[in-house]
Design a protein around this nucleic acid. Structure first.
Length: 544
DNA sequence: TACGTCACTTAGTATCCTCGAC
DNA sequence: GTCGAGGATACTAAGTGACGTA
């Protein structure tokens, strides 16, 4: 491979773009100016109003200032970035207004870059690289209530980069005047380039595209492990139900946690360093404050109410009736504890996974998510597909099955910004269609009356054609209404994540083959590339 | 067993691009 | 031909889990 593509160097602002401090123009040093532009570019974002963001930003910004600047600029509220912000807005507007030729030129440059840096050769195969561009400097945007939001993500230099390539290959050349941090030849790992990021101190990697052999094989293995779980899941379920009665607290907690992971598809819940990241939890890290026990709720017995922030600070809210034994155990686990105490104080993911390893080779907590997602898709497809339906209706059924999985896995999205508007557009289409239908019905009625009087062939024919028109409009109306329901149901649900990461693609391929649905209706180009192995492999009788 | 490091998968959002309606 | 909605893609954060060491 040719190594990474670095972020373009900073281009100082034109002289006429001003920064003001305390109402007065101030010329910033290049370094300080660059960081200021990061903030200016985000000025419209809610982030820049948040106390933590501002504090972190200001602290890191000051580190980039000259001592003179440092002594002048002491208060972020006195900084005026609006002129800079306007400049960037104008720039992006200008970019949109560019001529076709200019746009074409940029496109060609991108293609050239992709051609040169976007591929590597692994085991004699040319493979696409996923992210060959190094992340540019900017302000860290954590998700949720992140304590480090606003910190400066520093610029990555060749001197930060570790190159991994085979011994006998041509070693990528660093940019002129620079050196790599290290060149190594480790064929036990899949990454080509790595560097350490300065916010969390974690390592970032450049790896291959999902279409590559190495990723595809891994993906396939993942689903094979989930299929092995299918064979022993009944035994495991019986086992944990037995364990609810165990004399040992640790075993009981393990069994209840596993029940949640299995039934609700919760994530494992590794421990996190406090204060380093947003406060989110998974199953093993649930705290007492995250659940409420209702001996009875809305006519159901033994209901557990979950309310916590999971990965990416996405809220998990669910009221679940559980078995009496689970309920009693939870009461026991919560005895004499504070809200901020761990629910499963004798348990962590390492203990749980060691136990799972004993039950089945290669079994870990996350396998349950894959298994339950895929098995749900298969069942739902069986249930929802109506053989007599046409292709669009069958695809709707597929989406419904997909949605059931997304709900199980709690895959959410922010409602699209244009959602209300597009919903209103659709509604006005529906209203118009309804009026059209009323008109058509009226016409039909008068045609019928007319035919009764005249009793001739011509008026009979008119009745028939008016009848057909009504039918057609009714169908169109129904379609629109289905579309509206579909969109409404999808408002806050993201289907993509489960499709890409949890659903054995062979189930979908088999379903397409069985019902004569073109695979392109289910998977777009990228997805077909990623799932090429499954499209090759699965026949219509494939069973997960 | 606690802890840190490392490698890899999973995740939502921002931005780009395409295609159909007008 | 223009415009905007929505799908595709790019981006990178945030998880999981293995492993080595004390």
């Amino acid at each position: 491979h040719k190594g990474p593509v670095f972020a373009p160097p900073y281009e100082p602002l034109p002289e006429n773009v001003k920064f003001y401090y305390d109402g007065k123009v101030m010329k910033l040093s290049t370094k300080a100016e660059e960081v200021a532009t990061f903030f200016a570019k985000m000025l419209d974002h809610e982030y820049t109003t948040k106390e933590i963001f501002r504090k972190n930003f200001f602290k890191d910004w000051r580190k980039e200032m000259t001592s003179e600047e440092k002594s002048t600029i002491t208060n972020l509220s006195k900084c005026d970035f609006t002129h800079m912000s306007q400049y960037f807005k104008a720039q992006s507007e200008a970019r949109k207004q560019m001529s076709k030729e200019e746009k074409q030129k940029i496109k060609e440059e991108n293609e050239r870059l992709l051609k040169e840096y976007g591929y590597c050769v692994m085991d004699n195969h040319k493979e696409r690289i996923a992210n060959f561009k190094i992340e540019p400097p900017g302000l860290f945007r954590g998700r949720g209530n992140h304590p480090k939001m606003g910190m400066l993500k520093r610029r990555i230099m060749p001197e930060d980069i570790i190159i991994n390539c085979s011994k006998d290959s041509k070693i990528p050349a660093p940019p002129p005047g620079h050196k790599w941090k290290e060149v190594r030849h480790d064929n036990k790992v899949t990454w080509l380039v790595s560097w350490t990021e300065n916010i969390q101190g974690s390592i970032k990697y450049i790896m291959l595209n999902p279409s590559s052999r190495i990723k595809g094989e891994k993906d396939w293995q993942k689903y094979e492990t989930a299929r092995r779980l299918k064979k022993c899941v009944d035994k495991i379920r019986n086992q944990y139900r037995e364990d609810w009665k165990s004399k040992e607290m640790k075993v009981r907690q393990r069994a209840v946690a596993l029940y949640f992971i299995d039934k609700l598809a919760l994530r494992a819940g590794n421990e996190k360093e406090e204060g380093e990241t947003a406060d989110t939890v998974g199953c093993c890290s649930l705290r007492v404050e995250h659940i409420k026990l209702h001996p009875e709720l809305d006519g159901q017995e033994y209901v557990v109410e979950f309310d916590f922030l999971g990965k990416d600070s996405i809220r998990y809210y669910n009221k679940v009736p559980v078995e009496k034994r689970v309920f009693k155990n939870l009461q026991l686990f919560m005895e004499n504890k504070q809200p901020e105490d761990d629910l499963f104080d004798r348990l962590n993911t390492s203990i749980l996974n060691k136990h799972l390893q004993d039950l089945m080779e290669g079994l870990t907590a996350k396998v349950f998510r894959t298994y339950n997602a895929s098995i749900t898709l298969q069942q739902q497809l069986k249930e929802l597909t109506n053989p007599d339906d046409n292709i669009p209706a069958k695809i709707l059924s597929y989406n419904r099955a997909n949605r059931a999985v997304a709900i199980l896995c709690n895959h959410q999205r922010a409602p699209p910004k244009t959602f209300e508007k597009s919903m209103m557009n659709l509604q006005s289409k529906i209203d118009a269609k309804k009026e059209q239908l009323a008109d058509a019905r009226r016409e039909l009625k008068s045609a019928k009356a007319d035919a009764k009087v005249r009793r001739d062939e011509k008026s009979k024919k008119t009745v028939e054609s008016k009848k057909k028109a009504v039918q057609r409009i009714e169908e169109q109306l129904m379609k629109l209404e289905v579309q509206a329901t579909d969109r409404e149901e999808n408002k806050q649900i993201a289907l993509g994540t489960s499709k890409l990461n949890y659903l054995d693609p062979r189930i979908s391929v088999a379903w397409c083959k069985k019902w004569g649905i073109p695979i392109e209706k289910i998977y777009n180009k990228t997805q077909r590339e990623k799932f090429a192995w499954a499209i090759d492999m699965a026949e219509e009788d494939y069973e997960f």
